[in-house]
Design a protein around this nucleic acid. Sequence first.
DNA 1: CGATGACTTGACTTCGCTCAAAGACAGTGG
DNA 2: CCACTGTCTTTGAGCGAAGTCAAGTCATCG
Lengths: 235, 235
Amino acid sequence: MAEFVGTGPSLRAVPFGTGTTEPIGLLSSHQRSQIADIATSLQCPRGEVIYREGSNAQSVFIIGSGIVKLFRDLPSGKRRVMTFMFTDDVFGLAQTGHYINSAQTITAATLYRIPVAALANTLRGDADLAVQFLCKVTHELRSALRHTAIVTRRDALGRVTMFLRMLEQNAPAEQDSTIEVPMSRLDAANYLGLSLEAVSRALSQLERGGIIAFKGRRSVRVLDRMRFDTIAAAL
Amino acid sequence: MAEFVGTGPSLRAVPFGTGTTEPIGLLSSHQRSQIADIATSLQCPRGEVIYREGSNAQSVFIIGSGIVKLFRDLPSGKRRVMTFMFTDDVFGLAQTGHYINSAQTITAATLYRIPVAALANTLRGDADLAVQFLCKVTHELRSALRHTAIVTRRDALGRVTMFLRMLEQNAPAEQDSTIEVPMSRLDAANYLGLSLEAVSRALSQLERGGIIAFKGRRSVRVLDRMRFDTIAAAL
DNA sequence: CGATGACTTGACTTCGCTCAAAGACAGTGG
DNA sequence: CCACTGTCTTTGAGCGAAGTCAAGTCATCG
Protein backbone atom coordinates (compact mmCIF):
# COMPACT_ATOMS: atom_id res chain seq x y z
CA MET A 1 0.00 0.00 0.00
CA ALA A 2 2.83 2.34 0.80
CA GLU A 3 4.08 4.05 -2.29
CA PHE A 4 5.73 7.04 -0.76
CA VAL A 5 8.94 8.46 -2.04
CA GLY A 6 11.60 10.31 -0.11
CA THR A 7 11.14 10.61 3.62
CA GLY A 8 7.41 10.09 3.91
CA PRO A 9 4.79 12.06 5.79
CA SER A 10 5.75 14.31 8.65
CA LEU A 11 4.08 16.68 11.10
CA ARG A 12 5.33 20.11 11.98
CA ALA A 13 4.33 21.75 15.25
CA VAL A 14 5.51 23.07 18.57
CA PRO A 15 5.98 20.06 20.85
CA PHE A 16 4.64 19.90 24.40
CA GLY A 17 6.81 20.31 27.41
CA THR A 18 10.04 21.32 25.75
CA GLY A 19 11.03 24.94 26.03
CA THR A 20 10.85 25.23 22.25
CA THR A 21 8.47 27.75 20.77
CA GLU A 22 9.48 27.18 17.15
CA PRO A 23 7.63 24.50 15.23
CA ILE A 24 9.75 21.45 14.39
CA GLY A 25 9.29 18.08 12.70
CA LEU A 26 7.63 15.84 15.25
CA LEU A 27 7.87 12.32 13.93
CA SER A 28 10.69 9.83 14.24
CA SER A 29 11.62 7.99 11.07
CA HIS A 30 9.98 4.90 12.53
CA GLN A 31 6.74 6.79 13.05
CA ARG A 32 6.93 8.20 9.55
CA SER A 33 7.21 4.81 7.98
CA GLN A 34 4.47 3.56 10.25
CA ILE A 35 2.16 6.14 8.77
CA ALA A 36 3.49 5.63 5.30
CA ASP A 37 2.39 2.02 5.64
CA ILE A 38 -1.24 2.99 5.92
CA ALA A 39 -1.06 5.96 3.55
CA THR A 40 -1.36 6.43 -0.16
CA SER A 41 0.60 9.22 -1.75
CA LEU A 42 -1.02 11.49 -4.31
CA GLN A 43 0.44 13.97 -6.75
CA CYS A 44 -2.01 16.81 -7.29
CA PRO A 45 -1.71 19.55 -9.88
CA ARG A 46 -2.59 23.13 -9.01
CA GLY A 47 -6.32 23.70 -8.60
CA GLU A 48 -7.19 20.06 -7.94
CA VAL A 49 -10.26 19.50 -5.76
CA ILE A 50 -9.36 16.95 -3.10
CA TYR A 51 -12.84 16.59 -1.65
CA ARG A 52 -16.08 18.51 -1.60
CA GLU A 53 -18.10 19.56 1.38
CA GLY A 54 -20.85 17.12 2.18
CA SER A 55 -19.08 14.07 0.82
CA ASN A 56 -18.23 11.15 3.07
CA ALA A 57 -15.23 11.82 5.25
CA GLN A 58 -13.18 8.64 5.06
CA SER A 59 -9.69 10.01 4.81
CA VAL A 60 -7.32 12.26 6.62
CA PHE A 61 -4.59 14.00 4.64
CA ILE A 62 -1.06 15.04 5.42
CA ILE A 63 0.65 17.47 3.09
CA GLY A 64 4.08 16.38 1.89
CA SER A 65 4.54 19.57 -0.11
CA GLY A 66 2.44 22.30 -1.61
CA ILE A 67 -0.43 24.46 -0.39
CA VAL A 68 -4.08 23.59 0.07
CA LYS A 69 -7.09 25.75 0.89
CA LEU A 70 -10.12 24.61 2.88
CA PHE A 71 -13.26 26.54 2.08
CA ARG A 72 -17.04 26.61 2.12
CA ASP A 73 -19.36 27.95 -0.51
CA LEU A 74 -22.35 29.77 0.90
CA PRO A 75 -25.87 29.92 -0.51
CA SER A 76 -25.29 33.59 -1.35
CA GLY A 77 -22.50 32.61 -3.71
CA LYS A 78 -19.85 33.90 -1.36
CA ARG A 79 -16.93 31.71 -0.51
CA ARG A 80 -15.23 31.53 2.83
CA VAL A 81 -11.70 30.22 3.03
CA MET A 82 -11.38 28.64 6.45
CA THR A 83 -7.65 28.07 6.29
CA PHE A 84 -4.61 27.58 4.14
CA MET A 85 -2.58 24.46 4.85
CA PHE A 86 1.11 24.03 4.17
CA THR A 87 3.77 21.32 4.15
CA ASP A 88 3.49 18.92 7.13
CA ASP A 89 -0.03 20.05 8.00
CA VAL A 90 -2.92 17.66 8.58
CA PHE A 91 -6.45 18.20 7.42
CA GLY A 92 -9.69 16.27 7.32
CA LEU A 93 -9.60 15.34 11.00
CA ALA A 94 -12.06 17.93 12.20
CA GLN A 95 -14.83 16.26 10.27
CA THR A 96 -17.64 14.10 11.54
CA GLY A 97 -19.04 11.72 9.02
CA HIS A 98 -19.17 14.24 6.23
CA TYR A 99 -16.65 16.89 5.27
CA ILE A 100 -17.90 20.28 6.34
CA ASN A 101 -15.81 22.09 3.77
CA SER A 102 -14.08 21.54 0.48
CA ALA A 103 -10.35 21.15 -0.07
CA GLN A 104 -8.46 22.29 -3.13
CA THR A 105 -4.78 22.70 -3.99
CA ILE A 106 -3.44 26.18 -4.61
CA THR A 107 -0.11 24.95 -5.89
CA ALA A 108 0.92 21.52 -7.13
CA ALA A 109 1.07 19.31 -4.08
CA THR A 110 2.07 15.93 -2.72
CA LEU A 111 -0.50 14.50 -0.34
CA TYR A 112 -0.62 11.45 1.88
CA ARG A 113 -4.08 10.06 2.17
CA ILE A 114 -4.86 8.00 5.25
CA PRO A 115 -8.11 6.13 5.99
CA VAL A 116 -9.46 7.42 9.30
CA ALA A 117 -10.15 3.95 10.62
CA ALA A 118 -6.58 2.83 9.97
CA LEU A 119 -5.21 5.99 11.52
CA ALA A 120 -7.37 5.60 14.63
CA ASN A 121 -6.12 2.04 14.97
CA THR A 122 -2.50 2.99 14.62
CA LEU A 123 -2.86 5.80 17.14
CA ARG A 124 -4.53 3.56 19.68
CA GLY A 125 -1.56 1.25 19.41
CA ASP A 126 1.12 3.91 19.79
CA ALA A 127 0.70 6.46 22.55
CA ASP A 128 3.71 8.48 21.44
CA LEU A 129 2.30 8.85 17.98
CA ALA A 130 -1.09 9.80 19.39
CA VAL A 131 0.57 12.49 21.46
CA GLN A 132 2.33 13.79 18.36
CA PHE A 133 -1.00 14.12 16.61
CA LEU A 134 -2.36 15.83 19.69
CA CYS A 135 0.48 18.36 19.42
CA LYS A 136 -0.28 18.88 15.79
CA VAL A 137 -4.00 19.45 16.26
CA THR A 138 -3.25 21.76 19.18
CA HIS A 139 -0.99 23.64 16.83
CA GLU A 140 -3.79 23.93 14.29
CA LEU A 141 -6.08 25.14 17.04
CA ARG A 142 -3.59 27.93 17.69
CA SER A 143 -3.64 28.78 13.97
CA ALA A 144 -7.42 28.89 14.01
CA LEU A 145 -7.33 31.29 16.96
CA ARG A 146 -4.83 33.45 15.11
CA HIS A 147 -7.16 33.47 12.13
CA THR A 148 -9.99 34.60 14.36
CA ALA A 149 -7.76 37.32 15.77
CA ILE A 150 -7.10 38.54 12.23
CA VAL A 151 -10.69 38.66 11.05
CA THR A 152 -11.88 40.26 14.25
CA ARG A 153 -9.96 43.37 13.34
CA ARG A 154 -12.05 46.05 11.80
CA ASP A 155 -9.56 47.66 9.45
CA ALA A 156 -8.60 46.13 6.13
CA LEU A 157 -5.06 47.44 6.40
CA GLY A 158 -4.45 45.63 9.66
CA ARG A 159 -5.96 42.39 8.48
CA VAL A 160 -3.89 42.32 5.33
CA THR A 161 -0.72 43.15 7.22
CA MET A 162 -1.34 40.40 9.76
CA PHE A 163 -1.98 38.08 6.86
CA LEU A 164 1.35 38.89 5.26
CA ARG A 165 3.01 38.28 8.59
CA MET A 166 1.32 34.91 8.85
CA LEU A 167 2.54 33.94 5.40
CA GLU A 168 6.02 35.01 6.35
CA GLN A 169 6.01 32.78 9.40
CA ASN A 170 4.68 29.79 7.50
CA ALA A 171 7.21 30.06 4.73
CA PRO A 172 10.34 31.55 6.27
CA ALA A 173 11.90 34.13 3.95
CA GLU A 174 14.63 32.71 1.76
CA GLN A 175 15.50 36.19 0.61
CA ASP A 176 15.70 39.07 3.02
CA SER A 177 12.20 39.94 4.13
CA THR A 178 10.60 38.64 0.97
CA ILE A 179 7.15 37.17 1.42
CA GLU A 180 5.62 34.90 -1.18
CA VAL A 181 1.86 35.24 -1.63
CA PRO A 182 0.93 32.01 -3.37
CA MET A 183 -2.81 32.57 -3.44
CA SER A 184 -4.96 34.90 -5.50
CA ARG A 185 -6.30 38.15 -4.09
CA LEU A 186 -9.71 36.57 -4.12
CA ASP A 187 -8.58 33.62 -2.00
CA ALA A 188 -6.86 36.01 0.39
CA ALA A 189 -10.00 38.16 0.55
CA ASN A 190 -12.16 35.13 1.27
CA TYR A 191 -9.80 34.16 4.05
CA LEU A 192 -9.70 37.65 5.51
CA GLY A 193 -13.41 38.27 5.31
CA LEU A 194 -12.84 41.24 3.03
CA SER A 195 -13.80 42.04 -0.51
CA LEU A 196 -11.20 41.44 -3.16
CA GLU A 197 -11.05 45.17 -3.73
CA ALA A 198 -10.38 45.94 -0.09
CA VAL A 199 -7.40 43.59 -0.14
CA SER A 200 -6.06 45.22 -3.26
CA ARG A 201 -6.51 48.68 -1.83
CA ALA A 202 -4.80 47.75 1.42
CA LEU A 203 -1.81 46.34 -0.44
CA SER A 204 -1.60 49.46 -2.58
CA GLN A 205 -1.77 51.57 0.52
CA LEU A 206 1.10 49.66 2.10
CA GLU A 207 3.12 50.11 -1.08
CA ARG A 208 2.37 53.81 -1.45
CA GLY A 209 3.37 54.25 2.18
CA GLY A 210 6.77 52.74 1.41
CA ILE A 211 6.18 49.90 3.86
CA ILE A 212 6.30 47.12 1.30
CA ALA A 213 7.37 46.78 -2.32
CA PHE A 214 6.01 44.37 -4.88
CA LYS A 215 8.18 42.14 -7.00
CA GLY A 216 5.51 40.92 -9.32
CA ARG A 217 2.05 40.39 -7.91
CA ARG A 218 2.73 37.37 -5.79
CA SER A 219 5.88 38.47 -4.04
CA VAL A 220 6.28 41.24 -1.51
CA ARG A 221 9.30 42.67 0.23
CA VAL A 222 9.04 44.42 3.57
CA LEU A 223 10.87 47.74 3.37
CA ASP A 224 9.92 49.29 6.69
CA ARG A 225 9.79 46.47 9.21
CA MET A 226 9.15 48.92 12.00
CA ARG A 227 5.93 50.33 10.65
CA PHE A 228 4.94 46.95 9.25
CA ASP A 229 5.05 45.41 12.70
CA THR A 230 3.30 48.37 14.25
CA ILE A 231 0.36 47.97 11.92
CA ALA A 232 0.31 44.21 12.43
CA ALA A 233 0.44 44.56 16.22
CA ALA A 234 -3.00 43.59 17.42
CA LEU A 235 -4.89 46.86 17.56
CA MET B 1 -2.92 14.77 45.46
CA ALA B 2 -6.36 13.92 44.25
CA GLU B 3 -9.02 15.81 46.08
CA PHE B 4 -11.83 15.53 43.61
CA VAL B 5 -15.39 14.97 44.59
CA GLY B 6 -18.14 13.27 42.66
CA THR B 7 -17.25 11.64 39.39
CA GLY B 8 -14.10 13.56 38.55
CA PRO B 9 -13.03 15.28 35.34
CA SER B 10 -14.54 14.31 32.02
CA LEU B 11 -14.26 15.32 28.38
CA ARG B 12 -17.16 15.92 26.08
CA ALA B 13 -16.73 15.66 22.30
CA VAL B 14 -17.70 13.81 19.18
CA PRO B 15 -15.62 10.61 19.09
CA PHE B 16 -13.73 9.41 16.01
CA GLY B 17 -14.93 6.61 13.85
CA THR B 18 -18.36 6.05 15.38
CA GLY B 19 -21.31 7.24 13.40
CA THR B 20 -22.20 9.59 16.23
CA THR B 21 -22.37 13.28 15.52
CA GLU B 22 -23.55 14.33 18.96
CA PRO B 23 -20.90 15.08 21.57
CA ILE B 24 -20.75 12.54 24.39
CA GLY B 25 -18.65 11.93 27.48
CA LEU B 26 -15.43 10.37 26.29
CA LEU B 27 -13.68 9.02 29.35
CA SER B 28 -14.12 5.70 31.09
CA SER B 29 -14.35 5.83 34.86
CA HIS B 30 -10.85 4.39 35.00
CA GLN B 31 -9.52 7.19 32.82
CA ARG B 32 -11.35 9.74 34.91
CA SER B 33 -9.76 8.56 38.10
CA GLN B 34 -6.42 8.37 36.32
CA ILE B 35 -6.69 12.06 35.56
CA ALA B 36 -8.13 12.84 38.96
CA ASP B 37 -4.94 11.38 40.42
CA ILE B 38 -2.79 14.06 38.84
CA ALA B 39 -5.34 16.85 39.15
CA THR B 40 -6.24 19.35 41.83
CA SER B 41 -9.80 20.50 42.01
CA LEU B 42 -10.60 24.18 42.48
CA GLN B 43 -13.78 25.96 43.40
CA CYS B 44 -13.89 29.36 41.72
CA PRO B 45 -16.43 32.10 42.36
CA ARG B 46 -17.84 34.13 39.50
CA GLY B 47 -15.34 36.57 38.01
CA GLU B 48 -12.23 34.76 39.29
CA VAL B 49 -9.13 35.19 37.13
CA ILE B 50 -7.60 31.75 36.59
CA TYR B 51 -4.48 32.95 34.84
CA ARG B 52 -3.26 36.02 33.00
CA GLU B 53 -1.78 36.23 29.55
CA GLY B 54 1.97 36.20 29.63
CA SER B 55 2.28 34.16 32.80
CA ASN B 56 4.01 30.80 32.80
CA ALA B 57 1.83 28.05 31.37
CA GLN B 58 2.29 25.15 33.73
CA SER B 59 -1.22 23.82 33.99
CA VAL B 60 -4.01 22.56 31.82
CA PHE B 61 -7.57 22.89 33.08
CA ILE B 62 -10.67 20.79 32.68
CA ILE B 63 -14.00 22.33 33.60
CA GLY B 64 -16.10 20.23 35.95
CA SER B 65 -18.90 22.77 35.92
CA GLY B 66 -19.40 26.44 35.15
CA ILE B 67 -18.39 28.75 32.33
CA VAL B 68 -15.02 30.32 31.61
CA LYS B 69 -13.99 32.95 29.08
CA LEU B 70 -10.58 33.13 27.41
CA PHE B 71 -9.63 36.60 26.29
CA ARG B 72 -6.87 39.01 25.36
CA ASP B 73 -6.59 42.66 26.20
CA LEU B 74 -5.22 44.76 23.39
CA PRO B 75 -3.03 47.84 23.65
CA SER B 76 -5.94 49.96 22.45
CA GLY B 77 -7.90 48.93 25.52
CA LYS B 78 -10.20 46.72 23.52
CA ARG B 79 -10.77 43.18 24.70
CA ARG B 80 -11.18 40.16 22.49
CA VAL B 81 -12.91 37.12 23.87
CA MET B 82 -11.40 34.16 22.03
CA THR B 83 -13.84 31.59 23.33
CA PHE B 84 -16.26 30.60 26.04
CA MET B 85 -15.65 27.20 27.63
CA PHE B 86 -18.26 25.02 29.27
CA THR B 87 -18.51 21.89 31.36
CA ASP B 88 -16.14 19.12 30.21
CA ASP B 89 -14.04 21.45 28.09
CA VAL B 90 -10.25 21.65 28.27
CA PHE B 91 -8.23 24.82 28.12
CA GLY B 92 -4.63 25.88 28.51
CA LEU B 93 -3.29 23.27 26.11
CA ALA B 94 -2.85 25.57 23.16
CA GLN B 95 -0.16 27.49 24.98
CA THR B 96 3.57 27.39 24.49
CA GLY B 97 5.56 28.31 27.53
CA HIS B 98 3.43 31.32 28.34
CA TYR B 99 -0.32 31.70 28.23
CA ILE B 100 -1.31 33.75 25.22
CA ASN B 101 -4.55 34.86 26.79
CA SER B 102 -6.22 35.27 30.12
CA ALA B 103 -8.86 33.01 31.63
CA GLN B 104 -11.66 34.12 33.91
CA THR B 105 -14.82 32.52 35.21
CA ILE B 106 -18.17 33.91 34.12
CA THR B 107 -20.13 31.84 36.59
CA ALA B 108 -19.00 30.00 39.69
CA ALA B 109 -17.04 27.02 38.46
CA THR B 110 -15.34 23.79 39.45
CA LEU B 111 -12.01 23.33 37.73
CA TYR B 112 -9.51 20.49 37.59
CA ARG B 113 -5.99 21.76 37.34
CA ILE B 114 -3.43 19.42 35.81
CA PRO B 115 0.31 20.06 35.52
CA VAL B 116 1.25 19.80 31.83
CA ALA B 117 4.25 17.61 32.51
CA ALA B 118 2.18 15.10 34.46
CA LEU B 119 -0.50 15.10 31.80
CA ALA B 120 2.04 14.55 29.02
CA ASN B 121 3.44 11.62 30.98
CA THR B 122 0.08 10.05 31.57
CA LEU B 123 -0.87 10.41 27.93
CA ARG B 124 2.35 8.85 26.73
CA GLY B 125 1.56 5.85 28.89
CA ASP B 126 -2.01 5.43 27.71
CA ALA B 127 -2.70 5.56 24.00
CA ASP B 128 -6.47 5.38 24.45
CA LEU B 129 -6.44 8.37 26.73
CA ALA B 130 -4.21 10.26 24.31
CA VAL B 131 -6.69 9.55 21.53
CA GLN B 132 -9.50 10.85 23.72
CA PHE B 133 -7.64 14.09 24.20
CA LEU B 134 -7.03 14.19 20.48
CA CYS B 135 -10.79 13.92 19.95
CA LYS B 136 -11.37 16.70 22.40
CA VAL B 137 -8.89 19.10 20.86
CA THR B 138 -10.24 18.28 17.43
CA HIS B 139 -13.63 19.15 18.80
CA GLU B 140 -12.32 22.47 20.03
CA LEU B 141 -10.77 23.08 16.65
CA ARG B 142 -14.23 22.69 15.16
CA SER B 143 -15.57 25.20 17.67
CA ALA B 144 -12.84 27.64 16.73
CA LEU B 145 -13.76 27.27 13.06
CA ARG B 146 -17.40 27.88 13.93
CA HIS B 147 -16.37 31.00 15.79
CA THR B 148 -14.48 32.19 12.74
CA ALA B 149 -17.53 31.50 10.62
CA ILE B 150 -19.59 33.68 12.94
CA VAL B 151 -17.27 36.67 13.03
CA THR B 152 -16.69 36.53 9.30
CA ARG B 153 -20.28 37.51 8.76
CA ARG B 154 -20.76 41.14 8.04
CA ASP B 155 -24.14 41.75 9.62
CA ALA B 156 -24.61 42.15 13.35
CA LEU B 157 -28.02 40.50 13.24
CA GLY B 158 -26.62 37.31 11.74
CA ARG B 159 -23.71 37.15 14.13
CA VAL B 160 -25.89 37.56 17.18
CA THR B 161 -28.36 34.97 15.94
CA MET B 162 -25.61 32.45 15.27
CA PHE B 163 -24.29 33.20 18.72
CA LEU B 164 -27.62 32.43 20.34
CA ARG B 165 -27.75 29.22 18.39
CA MET B 166 -24.31 28.30 19.62
CA LEU B 167 -25.34 28.90 23.21
CA GLU B 168 -28.40 26.78 22.65
CA GLN B 169 -26.32 23.87 21.42
CA ASN B 170 -23.85 24.13 24.26
CA ALA B 171 -26.50 24.22 26.93
CA PRO B 172 -29.45 22.25 25.62
CA ALA B 173 -32.72 23.97 26.44
CA GLU B 174 -34.31 22.71 29.60
CA GLN B 175 -37.44 24.67 28.83
CA ASP B 176 -38.87 24.75 25.35
CA SER B 177 -36.59 26.85 23.16
CA THR B 178 -35.27 28.88 26.04
CA ILE B 179 -31.68 30.00 25.71
CA GLU B 180 -29.68 31.15 28.70
CA VAL B 181 -27.19 33.93 28.00
CA PRO B 182 -24.83 33.70 30.95
CA MET B 183 -22.41 36.41 29.82
CA SER B 184 -22.74 40.17 29.72
CA ARG B 185 -23.51 42.02 26.50
CA LEU B 186 -19.97 43.29 26.59
CA ASP B 187 -18.48 39.80 26.74
CA ALA B 188 -20.76 38.72 23.93
CA ALA B 189 -19.75 41.77 21.88
CA ASN B 190 -16.07 41.07 22.47
CA TYR B 191 -16.61 37.52 21.31
CA LEU B 192 -18.57 38.55 18.24
CA GLY B 193 -16.26 41.35 17.19
CA LEU B 194 -19.07 43.85 17.54
CA SER B 195 -19.64 46.87 19.71
CA LEU B 196 -21.74 46.39 22.79
CA GLU B 197 -24.34 48.65 21.23
CA ALA B 198 -24.54 46.61 18.05
CA VAL B 199 -25.28 43.49 20.08
CA SER B 200 -27.97 45.28 21.99
CA ARG B 201 -29.53 46.66 18.83
CA ALA B 202 -29.50 43.27 17.14
CA LEU B 203 -31.23 41.66 20.10
CA SER B 204 -33.82 44.42 20.16
CA GLN B 205 -34.38 43.97 16.48
CA LEU B 206 -34.96 40.24 16.92
CA GLU B 207 -37.42 40.97 19.70
CA ARG B 208 -39.28 43.68 17.79
CA GLY B 209 -39.53 41.28 14.85
CA GLY B 210 -41.25 38.74 17.10
CA ILE B 211 -38.49 36.21 16.54
CA ILE B 212 -37.39 36.03 20.16
CA ALA B 213 -38.75 37.19 23.51
CA PHE B 214 -36.75 38.15 26.56
CA LYS B 215 -37.43 36.74 29.99
CA GLY B 216 -35.17 39.02 31.92
CA ARG B 217 -31.97 40.14 30.28
CA ARG B 218 -30.09 36.89 30.37
CA SER B 219 -32.73 34.54 29.10
CA VAL B 220 -34.25 34.38 25.64
CA ARG B 221 -37.01 32.31 24.15
CA VAL B 222 -37.21 31.58 20.44
CA LEU B 223 -40.70 32.34 19.18
CA ASP B 224 -40.27 31.94 15.46
CA ARG B 225 -37.83 29.09 14.96
CA MET B 226 -38.26 29.27 11.21
CA ARG B 227 -37.08 32.82 10.78
CA PHE B 228 -34.52 32.38 13.53
CA ASP B 229 -32.88 29.55 11.62
CA THR B 230 -33.11 31.41 8.36
CA ILE B 231 -31.17 34.33 9.76
CA ALA B 232 -28.64 32.03 11.39
CA ALA B 233 -28.14 30.05 8.18
CA ALA B 234 -24.70 30.98 6.97
CA LEU B 235 -25.27 33.88 4.62
C1' DC C 1 -34.36 53.79 48.53
C1' DG C 2 -30.51 55.55 46.55
C1' DA C 3 -26.42 54.40 43.96
C1' DT C 4 -23.71 51.86 40.93
C1' DG C 5 -23.21 49.22 37.04
C1' DA C 6 -25.51 47.02 33.03
C1' DC C 7 -28.15 47.81 29.24
C1' DT C 8 -30.82 50.40 25.58
C1' DT C 9 -31.62 54.02 22.35
C1' DG C 10 -30.48 57.97 19.35
C1' DA C 11 -27.52 61.03 16.11
C1' DC C 12 -23.49 61.39 13.39
C1' DT C 13 -19.17 59.56 11.22
C1' DT C 14 -16.37 56.26 9.11
C1' DC C 15 -14.92 52.49 6.43
C1' DG C 16 -15.65 48.65 3.65
C1' DC C 17 -18.95 46.72 0.14
C1' DT C 18 -21.08 47.09 -4.32
C1' DC C 19 -21.13 48.33 -8.91
C1' DA C 20 -18.50 49.74 -12.79
C1' DA C 21 -14.62 50.26 -15.71
C1' DA C 22 -9.92 50.37 -16.90
C1' DG C 23 -5.29 48.30 -16.56
C1' DA C 24 -1.71 44.37 -16.23
C1' DC C 25 -0.28 39.71 -16.98
C1' DA C 26 0.16 34.75 -18.91
C1' DG C 27 -0.70 31.50 -22.13
C1' DT C 28 -1.95 30.59 -27.00
C1' DG C 29 -1.61 30.44 -31.68
C1' DG C 30 -0.52 32.80 -35.83
C1' DC D 1 8.08 37.38 -31.98
C1' DC D 2 3.88 39.50 -31.22
C1' DA D 3 -0.90 40.30 -31.09
C1' DC D 4 -5.05 38.21 -28.82
C1' DT D 5 -7.88 36.83 -25.14
C1' DG D 6 -9.40 35.62 -20.78
C1' DT D 7 -8.29 36.13 -16.07
C1' DC D 8 -6.58 38.56 -12.37
C1' DT D 9 -5.93 42.96 -10.43
C1' DT D 10 -6.23 47.84 -9.63
C1' DT D 11 -8.81 52.08 -9.19
C1' DG D 12 -12.94 55.11 -8.72
C1' DA D 13 -17.73 56.78 -7.00
C1' DG D 14 -21.69 56.20 -4.09
C1' DC D 15 -24.22 53.67 -0.46
C1' DG D 16 -25.17 51.28 3.74
C1' DA D 17 -24.15 49.25 8.10
C1' DA D 18 -21.57 49.28 12.22
C1' DG D 19 -18.64 52.21 15.27
C1' DT D 20 -18.40 56.15 18.30
C1' DC D 21 -20.15 59.53 21.31
C1' DA D 22 -23.72 60.80 24.30
C1' DA D 23 -28.00 60.42 26.92
C1' DG D 24 -31.28 58.03 29.09
C1' DT D 25 -33.45 53.66 31.33
C1' DC D 26 -33.39 49.53 34.03
C1' DA D 27 -31.93 46.40 37.68
C1' DT D 28 -29.56 44.85 41.53
C1' DC D 29 -27.40 45.30 45.91
C1' DG D 30 -26.18 47.52 49.70
